[in-house]
Design a binder for these strands. Sequence first.
DNA 1: GTCTATACATCGATAGAC
DNA 2: GTCTATCGATGTATAGAC
Lengths: 206, 206
Amino acid sequence: MIQQQNTETEIKIIAAATEIFLQKGKDGARMQEIANKAGINKALLHYYFRSKDKLFEKVFYKEVRTMLNTTLDSVTETDNFEKFLKLFISNYIDNVALRKNLFRFIFWESENFMKNVTDQFSQVFKNLGFQQNPVISKVKKAIADGQIRKLDPNNFALSLISMCLFPIIAAPVLSKVATQLDVDNLRFWKKRKQEIFNLIWNGIKP
Amino acid sequence: MIQQQNTETEIKIIAAATEIFLQKGKDGARMQEIANKAGINKALLHYYFRSKDKLFEKVFYKEVRTMLNTTLDSVTETDNFEKFLKLFISNYIDNVALRKNLFRFIFWESENFMKNVTDQFSQVFKNLGFQQNPVISKVKKAIADGQIRKLDPNNFALSLISMCLFPIIAAPVLSKVATQLDVDNLRFWKKRKQEIFNLIWNGIKP
DNA sequence: GTCTATACATCGATAGAC
DNA sequence: GTCTATCGATGTATAGAC
């Protein structure tokens, strides 16, 4: 497939559409608002992208790719699993925090949207090499090396990502429901990283 | 405040509105569709609830209360922390799974919606007694009893909830991105419960 | 309280000039 | 490619009969 040259206007539109869609969702987004933010008018939007659906699809696919790459970007090359784990927790939390709207958006829209595009999606995911999730590979190797005890690598990776990702998505709720956490404070996240590592590494046995 | 008697029609409307809002969000929901599902017409909808905003507000508040109570409902009374933990993980996953749309909905709508109602919200949360979150109380007691090692109760509770809740919200994505997990299969969740407990209890040290 | 009919606003999309 | 102007559809909300 030949990668088409993107015009400057096209880039501005995508950037504006991404921002609006991630904040308000597909239904809440307004073509007028996207046009305004891109510094153009509605007619030009439809000239470049036939419809709102098509524009959304472009943005959604691009952002899914970004979401998956966020995991890859957080992996540091090292054979010391303890070191890898500490760095991954820190990097992943930082990377996700920079894109909190993206993750909220994906988990919200995914169900309604995917129903019609299941097939293409599986393709996209496989093409990105998520099947060989690097976190899971690291875990398998660490078990083989005897660096950690035997456990299910898939569930471990899921737990690890859950503990890092969920608090960021839930932050708006947590700041109201669990004020003692002080999730708006940077110090919370510094401590959070340590606590995640400690729990994973040591468990809670006395 | 006097609790008003809810008419049968009012109950039908709230039930219909809840279902539609949770599935499609505030912007995606259509008053016509809510009316249809409630077996009435649009005019009557506005007769009972002045506007879509007011109807949404009613539903949102009610569902937030349900969300918080889900945590309370999952707590079993026992002084054995190991037993408590096993039961909580199982109950909480089951309870959240029954309301997966609710949790997706809350984390999505919370940010945009809460901006205008911050004050009232804090009130609601406090009134529900979430400040004395029973999970955190249990953890504190278990530490005092020497049943578990010393750790930060708030972060522990957050990690516990993250590991149970996040996979359920993320299931639509995971079923595409991590097919090996087989999240649509009941056996996955049975194993998931065990793996969460094992990780928390034992850590990963060899 | 419940309905039909309709007003009024807004949004996505297009026509047509430049 | 970019604009103004506008169409047609749809959505929220209301008027008014029963």
